[in-house]
Each structure stands twice: as C-alpha cells, then as structure tokens.
Simulated assay, not measured.
Amino acid sequence: MPYVKWTMGLVELTKEEEMPLGRNVLEVTNIRESANYTCVAISSLGMIEATAQVTVKALPKPPTSLTVTETTATSVTLTWDSGNPEPISYYMIQYRAKSLDNGFQEVEGVATTRYSIGGLSPYSEYEFRVMAVNNIGRGPPSDPVETRTGEQAPSSPPLHVQARMLSASTMLVQWEAPEEPNGQIRGYRVYYSSDMTAPLSAWQKHNTDDSSLTTISGLTPDITYSLRVLGFTSVGDGPPSDILQVKTQQGGEHSTTQ
C-alpha cells in the first residue's frame, strides 16, 4: 500500500510523519483564492499524483468609463468598458428620471458595451448606471452618469387663454405655459381672424417673446374675432389652443370675453 500526501502548489500540506497508508482526505476551508491541490501516492514501486483545481469565482467588478455618446429628445446612447478581466454573461442598465422620485428602471440582458435607451421624455434629466452580470450574480453598479434629453416642439397648447378689449381696436390676450413644453419656450404666436373657417395659415399672426400676455392693436370695431395661441421651442411649434371668440365693440366701450 502506498503512503498518500497532499500539496498545494509547492507547499506540503501533509506532515512527513503523518502520511497515512492508502487513503487521505483533505478538507479545505476558508478558501480565498484559486489554487491547485495535488494528491501524491508513494510506494516502493514509485510515485503517482493527481491534481484538482479549486477555482474561486466572484461577482463581477463594476463597469468603468460610462459615457453618454448621443442624445435625442427621446433617447440616450451609452458606452462603457467592461472593467472585468474575466468574461461576463451580460450587462444590465438602470436609469431613472431625476424629476421623479421613482426607483430605477432596468434593461436586462445587454450583450454589448454600447446601448441606446428609447422612450424617454424630452428635455428631462436622467441618471444612468451599468452593472455586469456573471454566472455567480449581479455585480455592483458603475459610477452614475447624468444627462438631459434634447428639446422637441411642445406637445400641448398654452392653457387658460383669455382675452379682453382695452379699447374698440386693442385687445389684451393672456395665457399660461403648456403642460408639456418639451423644452425651453422661446415665445408664443397669437393667431387671430374674423373668419374662423379660414385655414390657420391664412389667419393674422402676432409673435411675442416668452411672456404670457400681449396686446394686439389695429382691430376692426364691432366684429367677432377668433383667437388661437401656440408656444414654440427652438425645435418647432406646438399645437394651437382651442378657438376663443372675442367681439370688438363700437366706440370705446369695453367688452367681456366668452
């Protein structure tokens, strides 16, 4: 029967005087790093050995160099470096709108180190982070990156449009900003016409800055005008408000609005 001993790499684990005959069980505890364990059998006939590899696997490290490479009004493209020497299964992206107190939304199973996330709100601040996932589990997140999506034309009209006559030929028009400006409102356009059936392009136009009231003068007394107001960003015009009708009056009397 041979004597049997264990080594870890070049380190002898079995004391010379304690080598048992025929069978030797090695119990390894508190493993911190990968290592090769070799079982050696020695007899008068010679020596034979067999090696087992113990591999320590860990969660992946956080990805590095997370960067926003492109933004549109509704999408953001991210790139990053793996940050891991070992291969990983896939990446997971987490993102959230800064204005909302919601948790992160997640995109699972991203196979590349570049990804575009769509369906975002225009002109909004978002925070993004990426995690690597291997067969052990999900690693810690990367450093976050923040960006603002691009502008779009407004998607809703100005609110609470009101008008009243200051004189027989001058009208004061007031409104409030749209609920969905989708960017920075650069100004408003008041359309007005005595023929509400005409296409909007044929109505008279009065442009204003980003304030929420204006006066329109040079109106004809004693007729009914139709009014509509829209806001615009640097990208384009939003939808016009519903028609508001105002009647100018003879002489200098003031009229009230509908």
Results as ranks from 00 to 15, higher is better:
N84P: 05
V25P: 00
E70H: 15
T112G: 13
T170F: 03
E125L: 12
V76R: 04
G9D: 12
G251S: 11
P199V: 09
V28Y: 06
W80F: 04
V133L: 01
T215M: 06
V54W: 02
S194L: 14
I243V: 11
L59K: 01
S124W: 05
P181D: 00
A35Y: 07
L26K: 05
V25D: 10
Y192T: 02
R189C: 11
V161R: 03
Q184V: 15
G150D: 09
F232D: 00
T55P: 09
P60M: 03
A153V: 06
K61G: 13
P157Y: 02
Y37E: 07
R138P: 01
Q245D: 10
E127T: 11
A177N: 15
Y95H: 06
E18F: 11
Y123G: 03
N84H: 04
M47Y: 06
S121G: 07
V110R: 01
E108M: 10
Q245H: 14
R129W: 10
N207Q: 12
K205S: 08
P221S: 02
L59Y: 07
V56P: 03
V235C: 01
V107Y: 06
P221W: 02
G150W: 08
L10V: 13
T29K: 15
Q152F: 08
M8P: 00
L10W: 10
E12W: 12
Q53N: 13
W175D: 02
S34N: 02
T257N: 15
K5V: 11
Q258I: 12
K57C: 15
T256Y: 14
K57Q: 13
V161I: 08
M8A: 14
P144M: 00
P140N: 14
E176M: 09
V56Y: 00
A177Y: 10
G139E: 09
Y37V: 07
S82T: 09
V40M: 12
V107A: 06
L66H: 03
T147N: 07
